[in-house]
Amino acid sequence: MLIIKLTVRSFLFCLLLLSSLSRAETINLAVPGPGSLVYLPVQLAVAVEADKAEGLDLKLRFFSGGPLALRDLSEHNSDFTVAGLPAIASARADKMPVLAIGQLSQAAMVSLILRKDLKGKVHNIAQLKGRRIGVNTSTRTARSTSQMLAEYLLNNAGLNADDVQIIPAGQTREAQRSALIGETVDAVMGDEPFATELASKNEASILLDLYNPQRSRELLGGPFVHAALATREDVFKEHRLVAVKVQHMFDKTLQWMNSHSAQEILDKLANQPGFDPQRNQILLSVMQRNPKMYPVQCAWDPKAILTTERFFHGMAADQAESSLHFSEFVRNASPEVRP
């Protein structure tokens, strides 16, 4: 009789569990990738089932740049996105009803990669004058963060955007490699682990690496928000609890990252798109030499907001961008927390 009771209880528990899972709310999230180190926490959230812990079912939609992911958000194909905070600001300045609700990085996570035949010929950014630089894809309503960072580096070297040709080069290993190998571009504002992989195969060389938070701070004047979580104003207003759950999902993901080694993180990502276990040794080396790329929670760092806002104003393309204050669109989903 006891065995029967236990069996019935187990059966009822399974039914309750299945019922709970069936009620999980589907969240469509647009993100550049897959396989980019910048947006690694997004794919890790799926891998460690941080979404399930919040009663969510996270579905990822991949794009070749933050502006394309933002367009997907604005067209209501997704309700959340993770993109570069400067790209989000650019979209907001163009009147897109987008709100940034959390940060997922604390460095300008890009590498400037040269075609292999230019190694030894181009020693600094100033020598890129007259050449073609590939960046993540922009749209009519938003410039990509990598494009703004490219323009920032050019300005620091005494050049401006008119001194080079800016070309969309995508945001995947295959797209960036193809652009370099096919000589569509002379250099790419690339993502890791693609940059280190290409350099290790002698298919390209790295001119500048900003994945190291200290190097990024020195160049930009403080901590920098690259990857940021965002949603539309209508979602934030009408489905605030869902926004809070998504924020908590990423808190759980970042905390999991903070308590596990780089190798354990990669082991979890083994079945995720863009994370090939055969290439993990390269990714592992990048993560180990840059251990503080990600925050421990997605609550805003006020210093990082100020640095990123100052950067954005310095790279403003028009009056709408130069007059935009980040306080107009930077929020926290939890009302008791202030940015």
Rank of each mutant, 00 (worst) to 15 (best):
T141E: 12
D209A: 11
R217H: 13
A24M: 09
Q43W: 00
A262I: 03
A24Y: 07
R143M: 11
A126R: 11
G84A: 06
L154V: 10
T308G: 02
N77C: 12
T307A: 04
Q319S: 14
K5S: 15
Q171A: 11
G120S: 07
L6N: 10
E49N: 11
H239G: 06
L44W: 02
R232D: 09
M257V: 04
N124F: 09
L17W: 11
E183F: 12
P277F: 07
D209T: 09
L73G: 00
G170N: 03
A304E: 06
L283E: 04
V235H: 06
D162S: 11
P277C: 09
L73C: 02
C14S: 12
E336D: 12
L118E: 05
N258S: 15
D162G: 07
F250L: 08
A142S: 13
E197P: 01
I181K: 13
A83G: 01
H313Q: 13
L241K: 15
P339G: 11
S146V: 09
A24I: 06
S10I: 13
D94I: 00
R23H: 15
P97Y: 06
K201D: 14
V8W: 07
D209H: 04
S200K: 14
R61V: 06
I4F: 13
A150S: 13
I167T: 02
L21Q: 14
K116I: 10
H260L: 07
Q255C: 09
S178W: 05
R217I: 05
L85R: 00
F80N: 01
S10H: 12
Y152R: 08
P295F: 09
L254W: 09
D51S: 08
R143A: 07
E328V: 02
H123S: 15
I167Y: 01
A142R: 01
L266W: 02
F80V: 06
S20L: 15
A69R: 05
I206C: 02
A195C: 11
L2P: 09
H239L: 08
R215V: 11
S285P: 04
E192V: 01
Q255F: 08
P277A: 14
Q214R: 10
S138L: 01
P339T: 14
S74V: 15
K95S: 15
E151R: 07
G55W: 03
I113G: 00
A179L: 00
N212H: 09
L12S: 06
A228E: 05
R71E: 10
R310S: 15
M293E: 05
D57M: 14
R289V: 06
L154W: 04
D163A: 08
E197G: 08
R310Q: 14
N124V: 04
V110A: 05
Q297W: 14
E309V: 10
V8L: 11
T145H: 03
Q278L: 08
L68G: 00
L198M: 12
L283M: 14
S19V: 09
M148Q: 07
A45H: 03
